[in-house]
Design a protein around this nucleic acid. Structure first.
Lengths: 216, 216
DNA sequence: GTAATGTTTTACCAACCGGTCAAATTATCA
DNA sequence: TGATAATTTGACCGGTTGGTAAAACATTAC
């Protein structure tokens, strides 16, 4: 019988798992570089190496594909922030948060771009997640940072804008990769640029948050 | 006679100037939120309040509209960096560069998003500009920063990554506006968020670049 | 006023879009 | 093996897309 995908409650077939993975992989490629509206099912099908109706057998709509991707990415995207530990030392926590985010930008640039495209275009599919789970997590970690500042472990600063600054500087290397490479030139565009970036950002944030002698 | 737009060498009509401006304004709206491929001529025409063929009388293709916009934006986008003055004091130059970029993010968010979309999608229309004029300008200013570091006016750091960090943190408030608002919540999403951001970023960069006592 | 030019509209096209359908093919398992 | 269910394919559909042609309309210059 040919049941619509969503109606199947049975365990998934081996083929199903493989093909769905294959499709999401292709969809990630395409959505990440063209955004939702700029991507076509034909294009995704071609990258996945299958016919369009075949692809639509696994995901019944373009939106279903996009949603599946977004859900997966959004979840893993916040892992580094979840690991942010209130018990650790501020400097080492911030330092390793930066490192983790930078590693993600290096290792999963398509995921970062998928997300960036979605936000840029007004986050039509994930506004609820932004105002719900994401906000809660950030609120929680912002409170941690605030307490560090209050107890004099780091300089006083707005914790939300600190988080924004870490997000933007690290994701920049994934989202604006073409620009970064263009500006750095071919010689400096090797993988070493991530090490350079890590060094710079750690210096910036760590000494930028140090307590000054003449601090207010 | 009906000459193709590109072939007209005569002075432009009053109507031409007005309509072209009207169209570019509408196109900026649409391209900025949907990217090139995600935007349609019909949509732009509707926003501009004219019929599609009428619009196509002024810009013969979708690409022509996009190019006209990109050219204009790219130019004004670099103005703050051009003002970056080698003769000024490092701290005040960096401080006012941050302020200017932040003001642009606040006052011209669509322009920022148009640019972000273009880069995100691999900069298919402006790769040459990135590797040419943009790179040259950045190279020049990076040299200024390097000389400041060398003469001990600011901490040693990679000037390119410093510039990237300023770009990303400031443009973040335009490009990721939905996310910023979502996380800050309704109460803190007023215009005051730009003042908060300015305060935070100035503190971060200024004290992050100060010379340490125990500096290497 | 009128002729030349500039502008707008209506009607249209071929290609592409997201998605459906039914038939053909292949895998699974008793 | 054969029956049954899962997968793949090709043909197709209505709507949208970027863009054109030509005629109607408006504006300007003389």
């Amino acid at each position: 019988m040919v049941l619509p995908r969503a109606a199947r409650t049975q365990r998934r077939t081996r083929i199903q798992e493989e093909k769905e993975e294959l499709i999401l992989e292709a969809a990630l490629d395409v959505f990440a570089t063209h955004g939702f509206r700029g991507s076509t099912i034909d294009q995704i099908a071609e990258v996945a190496g299958m016919s369009k109706p075949n692809l639509l057998y696994y995901f019944r709509t373009k939106e279903a594909m996009h949603r599946a991707l977004i859900d997966r990415v959004l979840d893993s995207w916040l892992d580094p922030l979840r690991e942010f530990d209130a018990e650790g030392s501020p400097v080492s926590e911030i330092r390793s948060y930066i490192r983790r985010k930078l590693e993600m930008a290096r290792d999963f640039p398509r995921e970062s771009r998928l997300f960036a495209n979605e936000i840029l275009q007004g986050a039509p599919h994930i506004e609820d997640e932004l105002k719900g789970p994401l906000k809660s997590l950030v609120d929680e970690k912002a409170e941690v940072i605030r307490s560090w500042a209050k107890s004099g472990k780091i300089a006083k600063c707005d914790p939300y804008h600190l988080i924004f600054a870490i997000w933007s500087t690290t994701q920049h290397y994934a989202d604006f990769d073409v620009q970064v490479r263009g500006v750095l030139g071919d010689e400096r565009s090797g993988e070493g640029r991530f090490e350079d970036a890590a060094r710079f950002l750690e210096q910036l944030f760590v000494s930028g948050l140090e307590i000054r002698d003449g601090g207010a």
